[in-house]
Design a protein around this nucleic acid. Structure first.
Lengths: 120, 120
DNA sequence: CAATTATTTCGACATTTCTATAAATATCGA
DNA sequence: TCGATATTTATAGAAATGTCGAAATAATTG
C-alpha cells in the first residue's frame, strides 16, 4: 500500500452508499453478493450501484465475477488489510502506551465475538 | 462510531494532504506537532494547512491545543480506533478463515510484533 | 506600545463528484 | 430465435471540494 493507493481507497469508502456496500460485503465474506441483491438491500438504483461498485473496484477494494446473469461482488481482503495497516504505520514511534488500545481494531473475525451486532 | 461519523472521518482522510498530516501525527503520538512544523514538513501553504486541519478536527480525527504562539495538533486516538473497528465490524459473519490475516492491520505501536490480540 | 511570529479567516475560482434517466449489453429459458 | 432478467454504459446537470492571495487575529518580545 502506498500513498496514492490509500487515498483512492479512502475516497472510495468516504461515501455513504459505498461505505454501506463495503460493510455489507465485509459481513458477507468471500462469496460476496450479486449486484441486484446489493441494490435491493441498500435501496439504490441499479445504475447508481454500478457507479459505486466501479469506484470500489477501481480502488481495489472489491472484485467481481460473473455467475450466469448475475455479477457477484466480493471484498478484496488484501487491499483492506493493506489500507488499515497503512493508516497506523509507525504509530507513535514505538511508544505503545500512547495508542495501545488500537490492536483490537483489527480483530476481525475474532473467535470470541462478544460484542453486540449493532452499536447501541 | 456510526455510519455518518465514519463517512466524515473517511472523507477527511481521503485527501492527499490530509492523509499525510494524519500519518505524520500517527507517527508523532500524543504530544502532536505545531501547525507551522506540519506546514513546513509537508510543503503546504499555511491557509491550506489550516483548511485541512479543520477538516480533520471536524471529523474528530485530530485535536488542537495552543501553547504560546503555536497551536499543536495531535491525533484523536479514540476516533481512529473507532473507525478501524467500524470498517471490519461483523467481518465474515464469524468465519475467521476468510479474512484471518486481518488482525495484523491493527498492530499499532508494535516495534516488537507480539500477538496481543485482546489485551485484558 | 510597536514589531515580530504563528496561525486563521475571507473571497473567489476551477475541478471533481453524485445522481438520475434513457439506452445498450449479456445471459438464460422456452 | 424471442422474450425476460440482470447489469452496464452514456449523458448531463447540480452540488461539494481544494487551492490560492490578501487581510485579520493571537501571542511574544524589545
Amino acid at each position: 500500500m502506498n500513498h496514492p493507493t490509500a487515498v483512492a481507497a479512502l475516497a472510495a469508502l468516504a461515501q455513504e452508499t459505498r461505505l454501506a456496500i463495503f460493510r455489507r460485503l465485509v459481513r458477507e465474506g468471500a462469496p460476496g453478493l450479486p449486484a441486484g441483491v446489493l441494490a435491493a438491500e441498500l435501496g439504490v438504483a441499479p445504475p447508481t450501484l454500478t457507479f459505486h461498485l466501479n469506484q470500489l473496484a477501481t480502488a481495489g477494494l472489491v472484485q467481481s465475477r460473473r455467475a450466469g446473469r448475475q455479477v457477484f461482488y466480493a471484498l478484496e481482503v488484501d487491499t483492506m488489510r493493506g489500507l488499515l495497516g497503512f493508516l497506523v504505520e509507525d504509530c507513535c514511534q514505538g511508544h505503545p502506551e500512547l495508542c495501545a488500545p488500537l490492536p483490537q481494531a483489527g480483530a476481525c473475525c475474532s473467535p470470541a465475538p462478544r460484542r453486540a451486532r449493532r452499536a447501541p
